[in-house]
Amino acid sequence: MARRSSSNSKKKSQFAIYSLAFVLIIMALSIGKSFLNQQAQHFTDLNEMSLADLKESGTSLSGNEYRISGEIADRMILANNRGLLVSIKSETAKGEAGLIPLHIPPGVNQINLERGHNYTFKVEVNREGLPVAQDIKAD
């Protein structure tokens, strides 16, 4: 009987150890991911642009700077050296999904912009409610 008791308490202690180790691992992974996320986000000092506001009234956002992150769905070179017009397939933290038009003037830091790739843009909404890229970071 005593032997049977000593064996049970040993098993219990092992289970506790394993459980604790698992919790610690999970916590470590979460912390690591959060850290890594914070490391990958650009222009975090800017608010994410509201897609709903843009669709309802872009001019209401005129003059403001926002951050837009997403995949380039389409792009178009504007004539007369006016830069590019791209559409960003974005999904905000609020769960809004949709396409955001973005004008990239010629003077903006040039990087390769390819369809299907993710980028983060620092934008300023012009007076006609169109986001104009100020800076671009590839994700």
């Binding site: 897609l51 843009l54 669709k55 009234s57 389409d74 949709g98 396409l99 038009p101």
Partner: peptide, 16 residues
């Protein structure tokens, strides 16, 4: 009140 941004947004949605 020209709404180029909003208009483009909707056109792009339609195209999607």
């Amino acid at each position: 009140n020209p709404q180029t941004g909003s208009a483009l947004s909707w056109y792009m949605q339609a195209k999607s």
